[in-house]
Design a protein around this nucleic acid. Structure first.
Length: 863
RNA sequence: GCCCGAAUGGCGGAACUGGUAGACGCGCCGGACUCAAAAUCCGGUCACCUAAGACGUGGUGUGGGUUCGAUUCCCUCUUCGGGCACCA
């Protein structure tokens, strides 16, 4: 065995071996339990980043762990290859998005291989290839047939200079990112998918998904946002007369309604603006407002009276109608009743516009003040000043209001959802074409199945001014499938979330060019373990759940939920360094170019730029990103220390579901540990083969080492298999290796116990650092490859111990440690605890009131 | 603004079901090896009290509560992070 640890050579050798043996090519086998481990596929941005390394190392470790547990594993990989960055790169470099994308894929695939992931590349898929996206189109046509896909107008960001639609990301402070022009809003026809038809089921099923993180289920449930309430009608004589409908979850406060507020797009607002230019201007102002919900919610609450009045459905009193910039047309009926006494936003609105505030709910006897808002004003309570509803509690009042108003046609109980239908039309080139043909006489005509796929031209170069498909005559000009007349192809493409809503199914049968899915889906799906960033907790996962439901209705799959178990990993952070330039701009420096020196006692630090030796400011630790110039290139790490060190560091530095802070010293520590492991095996092997272990003739130190080895094995098995805490699994093996290093070798059996400890250490770490352990396993005398080794059985006999240490507390404070026999009864333990000298010091002459005994752990004496 | 998380030594983190706070690693301090440096190895390292031990005292973002016992459960606040529907 070689004395030096040389990662480059052993990693190449191990990877070559797995390739040759086709170790990770998955085959359907009904006789074996499968394990489908899937990491969210990457966008081919150019290079892998540390977030990818973290994601894929977690998945790979689980895949290898389950493989050693006898499961028939599948771990595929693909490319989420449509999207905006390819168009941006095209604008910047004049290269077609297709070429840029495929070049990136080639580079990143090589990076994947250098990291040693056990991926089945035979099933690789790329969403920008027609073999894949034709099935987007095919299923979209099925959705059209079923009424799940439909056409309606929607609002987009319009850059009037570039004459192009902008993504929210491309709108900065209300201006176009390239032109700086004030962005307008435009209403255009678009396709929507009716995810709301599945809202109830998407919500209900969450409660039977115990293997999804609680926080993701809560976030999804809140996103879907089921609200039980009452739809109330305020009748009016405006125009031809009618009813203003509002939705409320607080029908019990109806007698406190002092105004109604409608969205700028509401018909009553438009009616009122008809002969009122000031109002029309205000509506325009609202419509120009922010597109993002976050900005919408933080903007100043503004309103304007329409001058119109509706009638209160109970009292018949006139109620003024206002336009409010905080009322969303997309939720409920686009109108709310204003109850300033019991809703914080309505209170602020009423204060600002001097609208009356009428308290109608009693709040635990505390006085209501019209001066300032108190949080408890919105509590449920008994109705007061409420005419027929005085004295009713919340539920009684809601029920009575709903019943009374239903009787006169002005109310009904109603369930409302926050979830909106999914608009999938994008006015962009680099996406999957929507398979529609526009004919002057037949309208929007679906492309017939036999004409699929509608192939996207791959040689266009967008220049930032509109979708290049609009100028591509070859693509545009078609015959109408219905009447045969000259017609024009739809140039909108699909949201890239469509591509990622079903790729996990396609991995089961990526080679099938006759059908979207086939029988193999039945074997591999659902995904046993899905792994990805927490930032996808809502949108991607919800869309995927929705698509799976539709496919189930089509008979293509037999399950509702595509991901049995979900793991959401945390983000990767790094230091950020910067200087403010004279012009007031911030210049960021990559941490690689900065030297941080600790001051004398190691407690503070100073950062200087290597280039000029002058100080830079530290901006703390933030998510790695291009904009902050604080990314670390995994390739540099792999080249310098090897893939195993990169993998070990990223799995050790933090629990996988939490954020991870980058640390160069931590990487050194991981490298050092692998070298120590290598050295420990080297030293052991150098002394020749160890004798087989004779369990019947062990000394106490040998028994202790064996106990430690099997405790470690037990902990690693549980940490990876159940808890997914790779960091504590690694720490446990480090402890075992420390014990081996200290273990004195005197008798022959000592080397046997050490041999076992080293085997367990190597085997337990192999899912995380597969290359070095591949070599070490052979060096430990095995003729077979570690990748094919089953996980080791825990020797429960080795775990046995005769006695156990127990903590003794007096009044909850630690006062002594005692050692008792494992099977000692409570009386014995109690007596031993009370007999301890230090315990006696604290008990003294006080009467013992109570003794709490936690078997095998602790005694607490209460005096 | 709304929804969801997180906060523990100089730093990353551990303590899994309410039961020994600080495992493991980094950094730092001391030592060995070396002409020297790097690498490696050994020892120490929460704060305070103390000449020095101690199963002395304090201590897990803030303030309160429940409990024999709280990093863990409940309430309040603060700060940071993720998401908010056209970034993926």
């Amino acid at each position: 065995m070689q004395e030096r640890y040389e990662p480059a050579a052993i990693e190449a050798e191990a990877q070559h071996y797995w390739d040759q043996q086709h170790s990770f090519e998955a085959k359907e086998d009904d006789s074996r339990a499968k394990y489908y481990c899937l990491c969210m596929f990457p966008y081919p941005s150019g290079r892998l980043h540390m977030g990818h390394v973290r994601n894929y190392t977690i998945g790979d470790a689980l895949t290898r762990f389950m493989r050693m547990h006898g499961r028939n594993v599948l771990q595929p990989m693909g490319w989420d290859a449509f999207g905006l960055p390819a168009e941006n790169a095209a604008i910047a470099n004049g290269v077609p998005p297709a070429k840029w994308t495929f070049d990136n894929i080639a580079h990143m695939k090589a990076q994947f291989k250098s990291l040693g992931y056990g991926l089945d590349w035979k099933r690789e898929l790329t969403t920008c290839r027609p073999e894949y996206y034709r099935w987007n189109q095919w299923l979209f046509l099925r959705m059209l047939e079923k009424g799940i896909a439909y056409r309606k107008t929607g609002v987009v960001n319009w850059d009037p200079v570039d004459k192009t639609v902008l993504a929210n990301e491309q709108v900065i402070d209300g201006k176009g990112w390239r032109t700086g022009a004030i962005v307008e809003k435009r209403e255009i026809p678009m396709y929507y998918l009716k995810i709301t038809a599945y809202a109830e089921d998407l919500l209900d099923e969450l409660s039977s998904m115990p293997d999804w993180p609680e926080r993701v289920r809560v976030m999804q449930a809140n996103w879907i946002g089921r609200s039980e309430g009452v739809r109330l009608g305020f009748p009016h004589n405006i125009g031809e007369g009618g009813v203003l409908w509002v939705f409320t979850t607080r029908a019990d406060t109806i007698m406190g309604a002092t105004f109604c507020a409608v969205a700028a797009e509401h018909p009553l607002a438009e009616f009122a603006a008809h002969d009122n230019p000031k109002l029309a201007a205000f509506i325009e102002d609202c419509k120009r407002g922010p597109a993002l919900e976050a900005e919408m919610a933080t903007q100043e609450k503004k309103g304007m009276a329409t001058g119109l009045h509706v009638r209160h459905p109970v009292s018949g009193e006139p109620v003024p109608v206002w336009i409010g910039n905080y009322v969303l047309m997309s939720y409920g009926d686009g109108a709310v009743m204003g109850v300033p006494a019991h809703d914080e936003r309505d209170f602020a609105f009423a204060k600002k516009y001097k609208l009356p505030i009428q308290p109608v709910i009693e709040s635990q006897g505390r006085p209501y003040s019209l001066a300032a808002w108190e949080p408890w004003y919105s509590d449920h309570g008994r109705c007061v000043n409420s005419g027929p509803y005085d004295g009713f509690d919340y539920q009684a009042a809601v029920d009575a209001v709903a019943r009374d108003l239903q009787a006169i046609g002005l109310g009904e109980k109603r369930t409302t959802w926050r979830l909106r239908d999914w608009g999938i039309s994008r006015q962009r080139y680099w996406g999957c074409p929507i398979p529609i043909i526009h004919c002057r006489s037949c309208g929007a005509v679906p492309v017939p199945d036999e004409q699929l796929p509608v192939v996207l031209p791959t040689d266009l170069v967008p220049d930032g001014s509109g979708n290049p498909l609009l100028k591509d005559e070859r693509f545009l000009n078609v015959k109408c499938p219905k009447c045969g007349a000259d017609a024009r192809r739809e140039t909108d493409t699909m949201d890239t979330f469509v591509d990622s809503s079903w790729y996990f199914l396609r991995f089961a049968c990526a080679d099938n060019n006759q059908a979207m899915l086939d029988y193999r889906v039945q074997y591999w799906l659902p995904v046993d373990q899905y792994i990805g960033g927490i930032e996808h907790a809502i949108l991607h996962l919800l869309y995927a759940r929705f698509w799976t439901r539709f496919l189930r209705e089509m008979g293509a799959v037999s399950f509702k939920e595509p991901f049995a178990r979900l793991f959401t990993q945390g983000m990767v952070l790094n230091d950020v360094f910067f200087r403010k330039t004279d012009s007031g701009r911030v210049q960021y420096f990559n941490p690689v170019d900065v030297t941080v020196t600790a001051d004398d006692n190691g407690k503070g630090s100073i950062a200087v730029l290597k280039a000029d030796g002058k100080e830079v400011e530290s901006g703390g630790v933030v998510t790695m990103s291009k904009s902050k110039n604080n990314g670390v290139d995994p390739q540099v790490l792999v080249d310098e220390f090897g893939a195993d060190t990169a993998r070990l560091f990223i799995m050790f530095a933090a629990p996988p579901e939490q954020t991870l802070e980058w640390s160069d010293e931590g990487v050194q520590g991981a490298f050092r540990f692998i070298k120590r492991l290598w050295k420990a095996v080297y030293d052991h092997v150098a002394q020749g083969p160890a004798a087989p272990l004779d369990r019947s003739a062990l000394t106490e130190p040998q028994r202790a080492l064996r106990r430690h080895s099997h405790q470690t094995l037990s902990k690693v098995t549980d940490d990876i298999g159940r808890r997914r805490t790779f960091n504590t699994a690694i720490a446990a093996v480090m402890e075992l290796l420390n014990a081996v290093a200290k273990y004195p070798l005197t008798a022959a059996q000592d080397r046997s116990a050490v041999h076992e400890a080293l085997e367990i250490a190597v085997l337990a770490l192999s899912p995380i650092i597969p290359h070095v352990t591949h070599t070490l396993w052979r060096e430990l005398g095995h003729g077979t490859a570690l990748i094919d080794e089953p996980w080791r059985q825990i020797d429960t006999e080795a775990l046995q111990s005769a006695d156990v240490q127990i903590v003794v507390q007096v009044n909850g404070k630690l006062r002594a440690h005692i050692t008792v026999a494992v099977d000692a009864d409570d009386a014995t333990v109690r007596a031993a605890a009370l007999a301890d000298a230090n315990v006696q010091k604290f008990v003294g002459s006080s009467a013992v009131r109570k003794v709490i005994i936690v078997p095998g752990k602790l005694v607490n004496i209460v005096v």
